[in-house]
C-alpha cells in the first residue's frame, strides 16, 4: 500500500526542483498553451529539443517520463488514428471505401502524436519535481486575488493540505481493515470481477465510518488550537521568487519567439 506515491514526486536538488512551484505551475500551463502554436516540422522539432533540455535539467531518468505516457497510450493512438484516416489532402497512399491514408493525414497524425507526448512529458516533469504540498501552496498563492470576489481561497487551501496530509493515514487504515477482514476470511483480489467488487464493500464501509471519526477528532483538535477560519491567520510556509524564476520566464519567452519565427 505504501508504494502508491501521491503525485509521484521524486526528491532531488536539480535546478528544476529548486524553482518556485508557482513558476513551475504557470510555466507548465503556458508551455502547454504555446505547443498549439507549432504547426510544422521545424517548430515541433524545436519544442521537442526544448522539452528534452528541460528533462535533462531535472536529472530524472527518461524512463519515468515514458511511464507517464503509458496510461494515455490508447487515447493517443485513437486520436492519431482519427487524424490519419479522416484528414484529406495531398497524395493518397491507400484508400478503402471512405477511409483513406493521405499525405496530410500522416503528417497531422505525427503532429498530434508529438503534441500529446510533449504535453505529457511537461506535466510529468511538473509532478516529478514538485511535492504535492508545494503545488497546493502555489495554487493558493496564485488564486489569492480571488479572495476579493469572495472565494474562500485560504480555507480551500487548508482543506487541500489536510487532504494530502491524511492520504497516508487513510492508507494505513485501509491496510489494517484489509488485514482484519482477511483474518475473517475475506479474499481480496481473486474470483471474477463481481466477486472482487463484493469483497471491497466490507472494506469501504469501515473506512468511511473511520474517516468521519478522524474528521471529528481533527476538528476538535483544530478548535482547541485556536483555529477560527481564514482572515486573521499568518503563514509559516511562504513562497519566495528567486533570480532563477526570472530565467525560467525568459526561457518561456525565447520559446515563444522561436515558435512565432519558425511556424508556417
Amino acid at each position: 500500500m505504501n508504494k502508491l506515491l501521491l503525485g509521484r514526486y521524486l526528491p532531488g536538488d536539480s535546478w528544476l526542483h529548486k524553482l518556485d512551484p508557482r513558476t513551475k505551475l504557470m510555466a507548465s500551463f503556458y508551455y502547454i498553451a504555446i505547443i498549439f502554436l507549432a504547426n510544422n516540422w521545424q517548430s515541433y522539432l524545436m519544442m521537442f529539443v526544448a522539452t528534452m533540455i528541460m528533462v535533462a535539467a531535472s536529472k530524472i531518468r527518461l524512463g519515468f517520463f515514458m511511464r507517464g505516457v503509458r496510461p494515455m497510450l490508447w487515447l493517443i493512438l485513437f486520436t492519431v488514428a482519427l487524424q490519419v484516416f479522416f484528414t484529406k489532402g495531398g497524395a493518397v497512399y491507400w484508400s478503402w471505401g471512405w477511409l483513406a491514408i493521405t499525405q496530410y493525414g500522416l503528417t497531422n497524425g505525427a503532429f498530434i502524436f508529438m503534441r500529446f507526448v510533449l504535453i505529457i512529458f511537461v506535466s510529468t516533469l511538473l509532478t516529478l519535481t514538485t511535492p504535492p504540498l508545494a503545488l497546493a501552496d502555489a495554487v493558493e498563492s496564485l488564486l489569492h486575488p480571488l479572495r476579493k470576489i469572495g472565494v474562500p481561497v485560504t480555507e480551500l487551501a487548508l482543506v487541500l493540505q489536510i487532504a494530502l496530509r491524511f492520504v497516508p493515514t487513510l492508507m494505513d487504515q485501509t491496510t489494517k481493515i484489509m488485514n482484519a477482514q482477511r483474518a475473517r476470511g475475506v479474499d481480496f483480489g481473486s474470483g471474477n470481477l463481481f466477486q472482487q467488487m463484493k469483497a471491497v464493500v466490507p472494506l469501504l464501509i469501515p473506512l468511511f465510518v473511520d474517516s468521519f471519526g478522524i474528521a471529528e477528532d481533527l476538528a476538535t483538535a483544530m478548535d482547541a488550537r485556536g483555529y477560527q477560519g481564514g482572515d486573521g491567520r499568518t503563514k509559516y510556509r511562504i513562497l519566495q521568487y528567486h533570480p532563477r524564476d526570472v530565467y525560467a520566464g525568459g526561457w518561456m519567452v525565447i520559446l515563444t519567439l522561436g515558435l512565432v519565427f519558425l511556424r508556417a
Binding site: 483544530m222 488550537r225 483555529y227 486573521g232 491567520r233 509559516y236
Partner: peptide
C-alpha cells in the same frame, strides 16, 4: 506552527 498561524503571530 499551526496554533501560531491561527493567532496571527
Amino acid at each position: 506552527a499551526f496554533g501560531l498561524e491561527n493567532r496571527g503571530i
